[in-house]
């Protein structure tokens, strides 16, 4: 039975470790729980861990992974005070505490810049929707 399961796993490639990544790629020692979920909610616009995708669209969002800590902090404060004009960032910066801004700046400054891509668009398959 054991052999059977193992065979299945080997041939199916359904079960995989996180390939080619070290644990430290995802978590750094001082990472706080509060900051990691807050930072993750920036991903919708700035990509996973601040790695915005590069596309051939007319505009790509700014990648914030690996930017200088003081720079990120200053930008967020400037969005908050309105010193730097924004379409939407003032809404996000305004809802944060100064401590959260510092933590986010620290978090994103520690992220390794990586090349992230969009998933490939596909033709819709002929299955019945719900």
């Amino acid at each position: 039975m054991k052999t059977f399961i193992l065979n299945f796993i080997l041939i199916s490639s359904v079960v995989l470790p996180i390939p080619g990544r070290a644990a430290e790629d995802f978590v750094y020692p001082a990472q706080g729980l509060h900051t990691r979920t807050l930072a993750a909610s920036c991903a919708a616009c700035h990509g996973t861990n601040g790695n915005a995708v590069k596309t051939n669209a007319e505009f790509d969002a700014t990648a914030i992974a690996g930017l200088d800590k003081a720079y990120i902090e200053q930008r967020l404060i400037d969005f908050r005070t309105g010193v730097r004009p924004a379409t939407v960032m003032h809404r996000h910066a305004n809802g944060l505490t100064l401590d959260e801004i510092k933590q986010l700046a620290d978090y994103f400054s520690r992220q390794k810049p990586e090349k992230h891509t969009m998933p490939e668009p596909q033709m819709l398959k002929a299955v019945q929707d719900e």
Partner: peptide
């Protein structure tokens, strides 16, 4: 920016 939002959330 909204398109960029979509691209990044999909990624």
């Amino acid at each position: 920016y909204a398109k960029a939002w979509a691209h990044n959330i999909w990624s």
